[in-house]
Design a protein around this nucleic acid. Structure first.
Lengths: 260, 260
DNA sequence: CGAATCTTTGAACTGAGTCAATTAAAGTGG
DNA sequence: CCACTTTAATTGACTCAGTTCAAAGATTCG
């Protein structure tokens, strides 16, 4: 229906902005080895979402899952008083929308942090396909596993004692995800505002700012607006390890690298 | 193999301590309507776990899911310094162990809070069965949905601004789960220690204690050891709603019921 | 260029953590 | 069944990390 549709020959190289093959999808989520001719033939619709726009609002009926193809999202809830609680961030390859599965209504809104695009995966269809193609069953299982692990990791992020530790963990976690996607794990571009990070970590946005400054002063990172460069990963990891009850380290001037 | 095994006639009434039918299982997780003759015929092993004992330790290979039949559990991680981070609490009908799915190793330990028993669901088997019996597919999907929602709810618990709000939310959340199981939503027996709650909520255990005292003083609950009675649910809900940035209400003396 | 938003920084206040001591409950074993 | 020990829970006093309020740079965008 669009420009490229008649000249399709090498499906994985054609980048029709309006649709993608199941093989591409599988590659995005890290199941590229399960892509085959069959999955080459299956197409999914894509949907573009401009920065700040909602892919989905809470309470909407649950119909689709989404796989982030490009860009990034935050998931959030807005409470009566208008305060926005950020619940997570998603990037390339992440499956979104599962929180609507249980009650049939989305629990959180999904808002694009930049111009983004997602593959639309009608859940019913996905379920049917998973009966025939193991690759799709794998997709669902993986999404489940990721969701489950995310819960654990998020809790570890937030439950950390000091603000500095939380921010350090957030950065390392972010870097790790970047690295898993083949990007640098040293230079991060934070797509979200300080406020978003603050809400996510349960802090005031000023505190996030101060924590970043403080970590930078300690020499573990350097910050320039939304670009964060991890200068001394070991030092950062030293900070990140501190938990409630652990050695009463002086919070900001950990300076001395203790590790052997 | 045990006492009742030869006199089996009405499967759902027989309570063999060492095994259970798939129908019972489905009932426990709230999918009782999908139980049928076929599921009556399928048996799962049960496993008893004494109070304080681990059903499972982190890093163990992922093999089974577990469904809580009786008792309750906490899931936790212990970090290098020996600090135990509690990630969640589970009760009757909850599916445990999903956090091991992604990497094939359990991410958290599961520790019984009281003498408990679980149905052992070998994951491979579960997967195979889900291909033939829709009820089992439903079981997996529901577990996924619950896990996904839990993540959202936990984050809301922890991200709350003040300690009192967190504890209030914790209690209401707990009450709600109790109610869903047919128990009273007014009188709660907390199976976990203050320390566990504190770790879960990211607070010091003294703070949890103080928050409870304070809520009791305000008249929303009454506390006697691990028995908590919700006296004024509306008042408690009033506290629970307060979020970061919301009206600077005086934290403990909210007293005046504002609701119409 | 101005308007709006985001970020950083400062100063004052306070909620929650830490330390310490007391009380209560639950085991243990004679 | 009663001392004795151990663990859990509460309470108080003190301190400090983090919030709040305020104000000044930075950045983006129309």
């Amino acid at each position: 229906m669009t420009t490229t549709s008649r000249s399709v020959r090498r499906p994985q190289l054609v980048t029709d902005p309006a649709r993608c093959t199941a093989s591409e999808l599988l590659r995005w989520v890290g199941l590229g080895d399960r892509a085959d001719a069959e999955s080459d033939a299956i197409m999914f619709m894509m949907r573009r979402v401009r920065a700040e726009q909602a892919l989905l609002l809470e309470d909407q009926p649950f119909e689709n899952l989404y796989c982030v193809a490009a860009g990034s999202f935050k998931s959030a809830q807005v409470d009566v008083e208008g305060y926005e609680q950020v619940l997570g961030f998603a990037m390339h390859g992440d499956i979104l929308g599962l929180d609507g599965l249980l009650h049939g209504r989305q629990a959180t809104s999904l808002i694009a942090l930049e111009d983004s695009s997602v593959a639309v995966l009608p859940f019913r269809l996905l379920l049917e396909m998973s009966h025939q193609m193991p690759a799709f069953e794998g997709l669902l299982l993986q999404a489940t596993g990721v969701e489950s692990l995310n819960r654990v990791e998020n809790q570890n992020l937030i439950a950390a004692s000091s603000s500095e530790v939380r921010v350090a963990r957030f950065l390392l976690h972010f870097a790790q995800r970047q690295a898993a996607l083949g990007h640098s794990d040293k230079s991060l571009r934070l797509r979200m505002t300080r406020r978003d990070i603050a809400s996510f970590l349960g802090l005031a946005h000023e505190t996030v700012s101060r924590a970043l400054t403080s970590l930078a002063a300690a020499g573990s990172i350097s910050v320039s607006q939304r670009d964060v460069r991890i200068v001394d990963a070991d030092l950062l990891r030293e900070v990140q390890r501190m938990t409630r009850g652990s050695a009463r380290c002086r919070p900001s001037s950990v300076a001395r690298p203790i590790a052997a």
